[in-house]
Design a protein around this nucleic acid. Structure first.
Length: 415
RNA sequence: GGGCAGGUACCAAAGUGGACAAAUGGGGCGGGCUGUAAACCCGCAGCGGUAACGCUUCGGAGGUUCGAAUCCUUCCCUGCCCA
């Protein structure tokens, strides 16, 4: 009974709300359908938070359905107020366009757009040319302000203030769905659970305008067991772009996840069979690491490819493996800075150097870290504030700086 | 357009002439413990300085004062109520 992709998604924890469960299951179990997910163009790159929609899209694609990924070149111009406490900063048209292009390129790695069986579109294409009055007459009249105001998503904003531009977001997103329905026969829209209202508004609009019934589905908004948003950590955002975040660090993100999250994450972020996941989940105590490594490997492989995943795994096991001591972390993956030999000969204040390479944000902070024993040179703790770095600290690999337990930077000395 | 209440650090929120580089909570960071986890314990907290101390911060710009986050003027922004 579990051949239906809908059941699989459900079992893996991808589904928060659906418009009509039976209808959707029937649809997904039948002939190929076209579905879509919208991505905002607010950031320069996608991050781990977008992985859930991506995974769902891949699942459905593998089941034979046709994905459309919409980049929100038009909607981002307006800004979605749903669930937000404040109005978003206005981005320039130029920035939005660029973000959109990058994001499409990133999505392509997962979905392989070919313009036929898999589409990437930008809603700027149909949203920007709209004529205001015409739009109001044809689309606006279908929306009830009363109903919109009553929506949970706007509640917060009704207390803090909601500008008219944002209030229109829902109309635009609904219009997207309508357009895709008309042009591509798209009959399912998905998105984060905060999008529920917007998505339903779209299905309503299609019913009113076209008299057709289409479906809606949302994903749960995930947080880690400790309550943090997916994809944000102390070390920064977990970008999906290897230029912004090394595959090694991406791998580390998953290995470092909370014990309580492993099972859930395996189901969401890997394609491993549920049976296999069950086994991994059964691990206890420090064996849980194995489950985390499997998670990290699979997730990295999906995003950065098998080769990168293997490399990351290898580096990680050298760095943290069973062996004692501190052999080579991945020197290649480590950020590095080159300094001149003369400078080193003259002696360098460590606080200065750590700050310069970004391991601390100011000299004051660096000094504080030294006092607390949090800075290391070649894995030896810096003990005193007046300790200087010089040629004696130079190793064949340069000089290895470390702040805290996991943040490294390598200094290469120019000859 | 009118009335009222506000704008303080990453967020929330105290402070209403000197003891304020600014309470508290969350978050963050370092150390310890550990399994590259969680929980827990200890510590840190603008920038420069080993320190004494100096410099720059409380929406913006001016002003009063020996002294302003705190008082005055003005501008900008936000919320609530009325139109």
């Amino acid at each position: 009974m579990n051949n239906n992709i809908y059941d699989i998604l459900k079992e893996r924890g991808f589904i928060a709300q659906v418009s009509d469960e039976d209808a959707l299951r029937r649809m997904l179990g039948g002939n190929p359908i076209t579905f879509y997910v919208g991505f905002d163009s607010t950031a320069t790159s996608l991050h781990a938070g977008s992985l859930v929609p991506i995974m769902v899209m891949k699942h459905l694609q593998q089941a034979g359905h046709r994905p459309i990924a919409i980049v929100g070149g038009g909607t981002t111009m307006v800004g979605d107020p749903s669930g937000k406490t404040e109005m978003r900063k206005m981005l320039s048209e130029e920035a939005i366009r660029k973000n959109g292009q990058t994001i499409q390129a990133q999505l392509d790695r997962y979905l392989h757009f070919d313009g036929k069986k898999s589409l990437a579109l930008d809603n700027a294409d149909w949203l920007l040319p709209l004529n205001y009055v015409e739009f109001l007459r044809e689309i606006g009249r279908h929306f009830s302000v009363n109903r919109m105001l009553a929506a949970e998503a706007y509640k917060m904003r009704l207390e803090k203030g909601l500008s008219f531009i944002e209030f229109n977001y829902q109309l635009l997103q609904s219009y997207d769905y309508l357009t895709l329905f008309q042009k591509y026969g798209c009959s399912l829209q998905m998105g984060g659970d905060d999008q529920w209202g917007n998505i339903l508004a779209g299905t309503d609009l299609i019913r009113r305008v076209e008299g057709a019934k289409v479906e809606a589905m949302t994903f749960p908004l995930l947080t880690t067991a400790s309550g943090a948003k997916m994809g944000k950590t102390a070390y920064g955002t977990i970008w999906l772009d290897s230029g912004l975040l090394k595959p090694y660090d991406f791998y580390q993100y998953w290995v470092n996840c909370d014990d309580l999250d492993v099972g859930r994450f395996l189901k969401l972020y890997t394609f491993l069979e549920l049976a296999e996941i069950k086994e991994l989940q059964a691990l206890k105590g420090s064996d849980i690491r194995k489950a985390k490594q499997a998670l990290a490997y699979e997730a990295t492989s999906i995003t950065h490819g098998e080769k990168a995943a293997k490399e990351a795994q290898a580096s990680a096991s050298t760095a943290f493996g069973t062996g004692e001591g501190k052999p080579g972390r991945d020197l290649e993956a480590m950020p590095a800075t080159t300094i001149s030999r003369e400078r080193l000969t003259g002696g360098i204040n460590p606080a200065e150097l750590f700050t310069e390479v970004g391991l601390s944000s100011s000299r004051g902070e660096a000094k504080r870290l030294i006092k607390q024993g949090g800075l290391y040179v070649n894995d030896k703790q810096i003990r005193s504030l007046n300790q200087q770095l010089n040629e004696a600290d130079l190793t064949p690999n340069g000089i290895l700086l470390r702040a805290g337990k996991k943040k490294y930077h390598r200094i290469i000395v120019d000859l």
